[in-house]
Design a binder for these strands. Structure first.
Lengths: 145, 145
DNA sequence: ATCCTTGCAAAGACTTTGCAGCGTA
DNA sequence: TACGCTGCAAAGTCTTTGCAAGGAT
C-alpha cells in the first residue's frame, strides 16, 4: 500500500485502490457500514460527531462508534474534542487545526502560520508525538446578530 | 477589586483580600465547600478532574460541579479537556499549555516559544477570543519501561 | 464454513437537575 | 429572615459492551 511517508491519505488511497480494497488492506472486511462511514466523513464539510454520522447514514450508533474506533486505531481518522461533551471525527488529511464559534458551534478548518516554530519546554518529557491547537471566537454571521 | 488588566489572578486576589472576601466580591456566598474547592485547585500540582476534587475534599460531586461551573463563569478557573472523557479544571494563572503522556496520563504545564506568532487564517471569523494548545507524547518515566 | 461485523439492548462513565433542609449575609 | 447553597437521589448525555443473528472471504 502506498503512503506518503508513513501517513495514510484517504483521497490518494481511494483514488488508487477504491474503498473496498483500502478497507481490506487495512485489515478490515469491506462492509457497507464501513464504506458509508468513510463516505460520510469524506463528503461532509468538517468534523462530525458519531450522532451526525448516524443521521447521515442510518447506521447503528454502536456500529458507528466501533467503526470510528477502528479507523482511529489504524490512523485513518483523527478523533478530538473541542469544548463540547462529544468527540469529533474527521479523515486525516494535511495537518491542520480548527476554529470554533463560541456562539453557534460552527467549525472551520484553518491554516496556521509559524506553527512549526512552536516548541514546548517540558521537563519530564523526551518525546512529543503530536499536538492539538484549537481556536475559539465568534464567527462573522454570529457577530452580526 | 484589583485585577491585572481585566484578568483575575487567584494568588494576588487571595493575598490581597483572603478567600472569603474574594468569594463575596465575585458574588458568591462564602462557604466551606467553595473555599475547599479553591484550596484543592490551588494546592494540587496540575489540573484536576471533578472526581479528584471530591477525593481531596470529600465534598459532594454535584456541589463540586456546580462550584466549578460558577468559578468558570466568572473566569476564576479554566475548564478544558484533553483526549480524555472528563474535563480538567485549574485556577487561571499566566497563559500556558499542557503536555500529556499518552501512556500514563501525566500532565505537565509547559512554557511555549513563539506561540504569539501563531495566527490562524480563518475566512468566516472576525474575532478570536482564545485558543487551546496541547501536546501529547511519552514522559521520561514511561519511556524507560 | 469460519470468523468478523452488525443491530439491539443493557450497562457504564461523566455531568446535570430537582428538591428539601441548611447556612450565610 | 430570606435567599442562596448543599447533599442525596434521579435523570440525562455520550460511549462502550454483551450477545445472537447475519455477512464477507
Amino acid at each position: 500500500m502506498k503512503t506518503k511517508g508513513n501517513k495514510l491519505t484517504f483521497s490518494k488511497l481511494v483514488d488508487v485502490q477504491g474503498v473496498a480494497t483500502l478497507l481490506n488492506n487495512l485489515g478490515f472486511k469491506s462492509t457497507k457500514q464501513r464504506a458509508a462511514v468513510l463516505s460520510a466523513l469524506h463528503s461532509y464539510k468538517g468534523p462530525m460527531t458519531a450522532e451526525k454520522i448516524v443521521a447521515k447514514t442510518g447506521i447503528d450508533l454502536a456500529t458507528v462508534y466501533r467503526t470510528l474506533e477502528s479507523f482511529d486505531k489504524v490512523g485513518l481518522i483523527n478523533k478530538f474534542n473541542l469544548k463540547n461533551s462529544s468527540f469529533f471525527y474527521e479523515i486525516k488529511s494535511e495537518h491542520h487545526h480548527h476554529i470554533v464559534c463560541n456562539h453557534c458551534g460552527y467549525i472551520e478548518e484553518v491554516e496556521i502560520c509559524n506553527v512549526d516554530k512552536v516548541v514546548p519546554l517540558a521537563k519530564k518529557f523526551s518525546t512529543i508525538t503530536e499536538h492539538s491547537l484549537e481556536f475559539f471566537g465568534i464567527c462573522k454571521s454570529c457577530a452580526k446578530s
